[in-house]
Design a protein around this nucleic acid. Sequence first.
DNA 1: CGCGGAACAC
DNA 2: GTGTTCCGCG
Length: 514
Amino acid sequence: MKAGCSIVEKPEAGGGYQFPDWAYKTESSPGSRQIQLWHFILELLQKEEFRHVIAWQQGEYGEFVIKDPDEVARLWGRRKCKPQMNYDKLSRALRYYYNKRILHKTKGKRFTYKFNFNKLVMPNYPFINIRSSGVVPQSAPPVPTASSRFHFPPLDSHSPTSDVQPGRGFSAGSLTTSGHESLSDGSDRKAELSELEDGSATDWRRGVDLLSSRNAVSGGGIGHQKRKPDIMLPLFTRPGMYPDPHSPFAVSPLPGRGSVLNVPISPALSLTPTIFSYSPSPGLSPFTSSSCFSFNPEEMKHYLHSQACSVFNYHLSPRTFPRYPGLMVPPLQCQMHPEESTQFSIKLQPPPVGRKNRERVETSEESAPVSAPTVAPIPPRIKVEPASEKDPESLRQSAQEKEEHTQEEGAVLRTTMEAEKGTIFARPAAPPTWPSVPTSTPNEEPLEVTEDSEDRPGKEPSAPEKKEDALMPPKLRLKRRWNDDPEARELSKNGKFLWNGSGPRGLAAAAADA
DNA sequence: CGCGGAACAC
DNA sequence: GTGTTCCGCG
């Protein structure tokens, strides 16, 4: 029973949840609101209190180390009301993420795993608040270079712990990844094929409006089935398109770069891209109001360039980074109703591949009720915060207190909180001096590469490989990917990305390449 | 330690 | 669908 775990439970009560909404699978899984392990992990990662228990591994993007497995397990068990939880079990759960591509194991390093951000969608754009850049706890996974250039001041002024202090330079920590697809027109998203490689640039294009459609969707306009919502951020298409209307530059070239993307850019957009066939309707767009998003084109350029380099250096998929430029950016309201704020900070992307298919005789019962209509035309915003499961009860209390306040003060606080949530991917503690210039890969594991290759569909070199892949069971395929895939590595080495000073262009090219 | 199958709970 | 619990294997 939950008796033993009165701790955090669901927010429903209205009184006291302590865990941010985003942590619950609101969108990804209609039915359950339970927190997912990876959310949980991220949360721990986000808090400095747990730095000794689990922390980002510097030097590797998205990689984290569980310093105290037992403790992590304990915390997890607490959250899930599973006192018997232990690292063995927890790790099993983590292992399940391999196939889902949410995580993978860093070989050779004990208790070290790595998030596959390429598969996570983080609607909140990078710049979103990084409020804590200076002091920062470990909010964000180590992100390579790039961000150093862009920094946005903290969104909120009242940060509890942190302070504003952008002096550090890095900031844009969050990465949004995107780019992938997963949509298969409502048809079979399960098709193995689709899963595998995504595909096409189109996706992103489509994404562009996802945002806008979101509202529509909730409005019920869409009768779409509740297929899994995997959407990704909209990213702009190719760099060459900067000049297009979608470009932020055009939109809001504000001089002072002070603002931040106010985040809520996207709540979890959960719609299937397909849905929107695409009709940009500004009116629907959630963020068509004022502009909170402002920056200098110059910076943007820099930023992009850096990203490109990062991609190269770290073997990341170009799509790893958001293409803000394309962000349609209809500026969003700085102060939206608290309620409309964002909700999810991260979203999972593709569906699991072929999970094991049990031949069990399924009762062909349709899930009839699904009484979880998200009803809300309004996205559930995140309520963020919580110190919840931390250990001490005291924390909990404070959290609650906070909550209360929130309720009263509502808007303001809420906004702040949102910001906090964005923090998750904000810069981590200290940037290990990332070389802004690519020269050689610093570390030893170019894992991302693999992914990269898989991300690009039309890649010629991979043709053979692909075929092979096709022949092999999905499982193996995956495995191969994460483990060492010499082939993939090679590919990347062969100069898949060559952006010599081409900056964004290079990125684009690469993308286009696919 | 880490992996992944299997059965099961929710 | 997402975990949890067990467990054998390397």
